[in-house]
Simulated scan of single mutants.
Amino acid sequence: MASKHGTSWKDSVSNAGDEIHDFSCSVCKDDNLNIEAEYFCGDCSKYYCDTCLTFHAKLLKHHVVLGRKDVDMWVGQGDALVACALHPPKVIELLCEDHDELCCHLCVSLNHRMCRSISLISDLAKGIHKMANFKQLPANVTKVTDRLNQVNEARKKNQNSLNTSGKSILTQIKNLRSSLNEMLDELEKMTVEQIDSVLADLDGSLQKDIDHCDLLHDQLKALLDTVQAQGKESSSYIGFKKCKDTMEEANRLLHEIENKQEATITFQPDTRAQQLLSDLKALGNIQY
Rank of each mutant, 00 (worst) to 15 (best):
L86E: 12
K135E: 14
E101A: 14
A85V: 11
V151Y: 05
C96A: 03
R147F: 09
L137V: 09
H112E: 00
M114R: 11
V144C: 12
H105L: 11
P89T: 03
K135D: 03
I128T: 02
L102T: 06
V151K: 01
M131S: 11
R116L: 15
K143W: 06
C84L: 03
A132D: 10
C115T: 04
P89Y: 05
C107P: 01
N140P: 05
N133W: 01
N160L: 09
H112R: 07
G76Y: 10
E153G: 08
A83Y: 00
T164R: 09
I121K: 00
V151I: 14
S119D: 12
R113P: 01
R147L: 15
I118N: 02
Q136F: 11
S119L: 03
L86N: 13
A125E: 00
N158F: 06
E153A: 15
K157Q: 13
A132G: 06
C103N: 07
L137T: 08
L95F: 10
L106Y: 07
N158I: 15
N133P: 01
R155E: 04
L102A: 06
A85D: 13
D146T: 15
V141H: 04
A85M: 08
N111W: 05
Q159P: 01
S109F: 02
C115R: 06
K156C: 08
V108T: 07
L102C: 01
N133S: 14
A132T: 15
K156L: 14
H87G: 03
Q77I: 06
K130R: 08
N133L: 08
G76R: 06
L124C: 06
V108A: 05
N111L: 04
S161C: 09
P88F: 07
V144Y: 08
C84V: 10
Q77M: 13
Q159E: 08
P138N: 05
Q136A: 13
T142M: 12
N158V: 15
G76K: 05
L106G: 00
